[in-house]
Design a protein around this nucleic acid. Structure first.
Lengths: 191, 191
DNA sequence: CGGTTATAGTTGCTCAAGCAGTCGTTGGGC
DNA sequence: GCCCAACGACTGCTTGAGCAACTATAACCG
């Protein structure tokens, strides 16, 4: 593969055609394709269901992360670290969701720079309306597609890939120091 | 879960806190989390490497799909069906990549509505520069993380999930009729 | 043929998201 | 106590993507 594009080609097309089709049958390419297509497929199914409840995927993730956190709240920065959003992205999602009455901002008592995003009652209600159907979608399109041990094997593999590739993002939880999270998070984000 | 938000709560917080942490420990949520985080992690790693070669993920997918197609070309619509892009999205990616010299448009001889996107020599060169590193990234962060049978189990599971959830997108290939592709593709796309 | 319908691609508009820059706040070093 | 670096959140600007509307071509059908 190092002498790939060595000589500059009158008959480019033939030469590339051969090499290229070979390369794209590479099992590594196939593997990534499977993972990405599975993800894309599930995303599409989930989005459709979330949309019925007036939520985008990002909004659902935000409200979920908040709801599972102590006090149903999280500092903006921590929320950014847990989601795949930048801090400015979080500012704007929270803007929209606050406008829609799903969240509120609350001042942080001991640090006047920070503010919390808190799920409102209306937000909780929306989440409760959305969740059962969401779980059903997961069952239908993902976990229900495999028998228990195949699923376990799949999840085991995914966990190992995740642990290797995914910069851990659990800011606001107690098991990770903020600096650590910030570092890994920045490493993840593009330039 | 049906009597979830039954009584409108003075002690909302406690009640939700309990239910909610339970719900979010649901193995189905965890499973999706693993898949999505694995995907996000790999995407981030791949994007970093692609960026070194001046390609976005979408551009890489486009040029890859074209390069693996007969004649290194595909009609705009078929390209849209194969990628996760709308036709207008494809128009614009191809615009940019044509401006950058990676692709050209070529008129379709037998249908004057259609046009092909064709990879240029320069585009092929760019792809060839990018691919080895990309394969290496896959190896490093994904396939190399697992021993062969664990990987096989993972891929097998992914394949089943993909087949269930992913609207098959192989337009321009010979094994699928265009109408079929269009139908599944539209089903996939949000509203 | 002529007209209607469907298809391929492009374009205007909108919106979501990131980066870089800003402002106020905090905390550490002296 | 004072200063300066670091931090948290927000805002201006740009970019990328989708939808809907439009044009040109093709296909179908009477």
């Amino acid at each position: 593969m190092s002498n790939y594009n060595r000589n500059n080609i009158p008959r480019v097309k033939h030469w590339y055609d051969e090499r290229v089709t070979n390369v794209f049958d590479d099992p590594r390419i196939t593997a990534v394709g499977l993972l990405f297509e599975a993800h894309a497929g599930l995303s599409a199914r989930f989005n459709a269901q979330l949309e019925e409840h007036g939520l985008s995927a990002v909004e659902f993730e935000v409200i979920t992360r908040l709801a599972r956190s102590p006090g149903n709240q999280l500092r903006m920065t921590d929320l950014a670290a847990q989601t795949s959003l930048s801090t400015s992205g979080v500012t704007r999602v929270v803007d929209r969701m606050e406008r829609d009455g799903l969240l509120t901002r609350r001042a942080c008592p001991n640090d006047r720079r920070s503010s919390y995003a808190v799920v409102t009652g209306s937000g909780m209600q929306r989440l409760n309306e959305t969740l059962p159907g969401h779980l059903q979608m997961i069952e239908q399109w993902f976990t229900g597609q495999l028998d228990p041990e195949a699923l376990a094997a799949l999840l085991d593999g995914l966990r190992r890939v995740r642990d290797a590739a995914h910069p851990c993002a659990t800011a606001g939880s107690d098991d990770v120091s903020p600096e650590q999270v910030a570092a890994t998070d920045n490493a993840n984000r593009r330039h």
